[in-house]
Every structure is written in C-alpha cells, then in structure tokens.
C-alpha cells in the first residue's frame, strides 16, 4: 500500500532532455496507465520510478519518503518486464521465489508464498517447469507471480502484454486488472496501446515527447482532451482535425459552415470524432467517400472534404456504400465538437 509522488521529474541523457518535467500524485491503490507513442519517454519514466535509471532532476517519493537515491530493492516495488525477463535456468517456482530467497526468508515460508501466488494465477501445475516450456501467456503469468509474491507496495508494468497475440492480450488485460483490484496495490502501467490504457486505467497519463500532455480518467481524456495530441492519440479511429475559422455565422470550414458552440473568433483547429458523426441529408458536413471498411458492428468511411482534407466517419451498423458513390452529408452535436488553439494545440473552452 503506498502513494507515489512524482514532482517535476526530469531526465537528461547528455544534453538531450527526454523527460521534461512530469508531476503526478498516484493515490494508494490507484491504477495509473502511462500511454504514448514509442519514443515519448514513458518507459524511461517508469524505469526512473523503478530505480533502473537515475533521476536528473525533481523528486520521487514512494509512500511520502524520498526515493531518488534508493536502490530498486529498497523501494519496495516489483516490476514486470516486456520480455518477462524470467531466469531461463530456474523453474517457475524458483523464478517466483528468487526475490524472497535473496531477502533471506526461510524455505517453507517461500514455498507457501509461491504456492499461494501460483494458486491465484493458476500456475500450480506448472511450478516445476522451465520458462522455455511455457507459452507466452504462461510466462506472462509467471512474471506477474514473481511480482506478487514479494508483496510490494507498488507494481510497475513495462508494456507487459505487447509480446502476446491479440486474443491473449484481451484476456491477460482483464486478469491483470482483476488481480490489481483484488490486491489493491498501487500500479503504474506503461503501454503504447490506447485500448489497454482506456480499459485498465483509473487515471491515465498521455505522454508525448517527454511531456505529460494530459492526466485524467480515461473518459475525461476522451471527452475533454486538453491538447490536440491527446485528442488524436486517444480514440480509434483517431479524431478528424480540420482547420476552421470562427467568423460571423459560425465556424467556417471551406464552404461549409458549422455551429460555433463557444463563439470563438479567428483560426482554430476543429476536432470531430468519427463515431460522433451522424448521417443527415441536411447536415453541414459534406464528405466524398473513397473507401468503406465494414467492421460488422460499424462501418468506417474514409474520404475527404471539399477542401481536400482527409476525413473519416464511423457509422453504426453495415452501410453498403460503394466507394466513389458520391457525397455523404453528416452532422454532429455541438457538445461533441472540440476546439483547439491553432498555434499551441491547447483546448479552447
């Protein structure tokens, strides 16, 4: 049980600053997901919390205690690695019990804790196997087991599911989330997969180029993205962003005129989520459909606006629209329109 506080954490490699000051207070028992594209510094941030990278500037507190200079083992954390990092020559039981063995626990106690964790993760049958003889999902569970047996105050996950196939990923995602809420252990979870982030997080940190673009609950980020980056990164297919200008009569996009919910003036960036678009013969938006992707539950229509800007709409159900069939008119509710400053990319209103 612990809180984790990051206070303006920075990381420099030589003169390049890769983390440009991240602050967040993780509550006790909270599941925080750090999400961002590759190279945004999310793994580095996690590794700084783990103690595998030094912190160039700022303060890290675990349970209120300054942890900048503590060794990983003294931070009371456990980490699950992307490639699992199981010790290949040890059996599953030995892998899970290794940390306890180093801590000097008596053998019967180690065995009991390993057995308990194995029961929790359905690994009991596999305790004598070597990592080589396990499937990807099983290895993943062993890595989880190794983290659990030590009863740490903080779990750190570094893209733990990215080596699994899609179906297994969904299953393990649920298992991890379930386990975490059952054990109630504070967790930091790094991923590049926004679906993982949306489904697992109590709160998420959207990172881009070493900066935390937005910190909030998944739905907060989805409904009120603070920056253009967060708006486009979260949501699938990603948000349409088009140049617009606030003038008399509403928001002008080329020939089209949309309602102006905030009454903003001048050039802005307008964000419209594909799934919020509704077909309407009278609608203000007109797109040329070039390609339809039927997904079953919904259909993705890719095309462009009169101005040539690419545009995507996601309509529920099956629409047998042939590509090049012509114009499609759409409308959108004013509350689903997102406006961003055209220079800073910050949210307006």
């Amino acid at each position: 049980m612990a809180t984790v506080d990051l206070d303006n954490i920075k990381k420099r490699f030589g003169t390049t600053e890769v983390i440009k000051g991240v602050s967040v207070n993780v509550q006790d028992g909270e599941f925080v997901v750090i999400v961002g594209p590759s190279g945004c510094g999310k793994s580095t941030l996690l590794r700084m919390v783990a103690g595998l990278e030094t912190i160039s500037e700022g303060e890290l507190r675990i349970n209120g205690r300054r942890a900048n200079d503590l060794e990983p083992m003294d931070r009371d954390i456990a980490m699950v690695f992307q490639n699992y990092a199981l010790y290949p020559h040890m059996s599953v039981a030995q892998n899970m019990g290794y940390g306890l063995k180093i801590a000097g626990l008596p053998k019967p106690e180690i065995a009991a804790k390993v057995a308990e964790a194995a029961r929790l993760l359905q690994l009991t049958e596999l305790l004598d196997r070597k990592p080589k003889q396990l499937s990807g999902g099983q290895r993943q569970r062993v890595a989880m087991g190794r983290a659990i047996v030590r009863e740490p105050s903080v779990f750190l996950f570094d893209e733990p599911l990215s080596n699994l196939d899609a179906k297994l990923r969904v299953q393990m995602r649920l298992e991890i989330k379930e386990l975490q809420s059952k054990l109630g252990i504070t967790s930091l979870y790094v991923t590049h997969d926004q679906v993982e982030a949306m489904t697992m997080a109590d709160r998420m940190i959207v990172m881009n180029a070493g900066v935390a673009e937005q910190i909030g609950t998944p739905l907060d980020v989805y409904e009120r993205p603070e920056t253009l980056f967060a708006a486009q990164f979260i949501g699938s297919p990603s948000m349409n962003v088009i140049k617009a200008e606030g003038r008399e009569g509403g928001l002008h996009v080329g020939e089209m005129v949309l309602p102006n919910p905030t009454g903003v003036e001048g050039p802005v960036m307008l964000g419209l989520r594909p799934e919020h678009l509704v077909p309407d013969p009278e609608g203000p938006i007109e797109m040329q459909v070039l390609l339809a992707e039927p997904l079953g539950a919904n259909t993705l229509l890719h095309g462009k606006l009169a101005s040539g800007t690419g545009f995507t709409a996601s309509l529920p159900g099956v629409h047998r629209v042939m590509a090049g069939e012509g114009a499609l008119r759409l409308t959108i509710e004013a509350r689903n329109m997102h406006l961003f400053d055209s220079e800073t990319g910050r949210r307006l209103g």
Binding site: L52, P72, M73, Y87, Y98, I102
Partner: peptide, 23 residues
C-alpha cells in the same frame, strides 16, 4: 543476455556478485 535479466535481478534485490553467481 537481455539487459532486463540483470534489471529483474536488481529489482529482486540481487547484488552484483549474487547476480553473477545465481544467474
């Protein structure tokens, strides 16, 4: 040998010589 193995051992609390000997 992947770096993560050394890091996992570090998180597990193994000092360098312990890592050498055990892993």
């Amino acid at each position: 040998i992947p770096d993560e193995l050394a890091e996992a051992a570090r998180v597990d609390g193994a000092r360098p010589m312990r890592f050498f000997w055990d892993i």
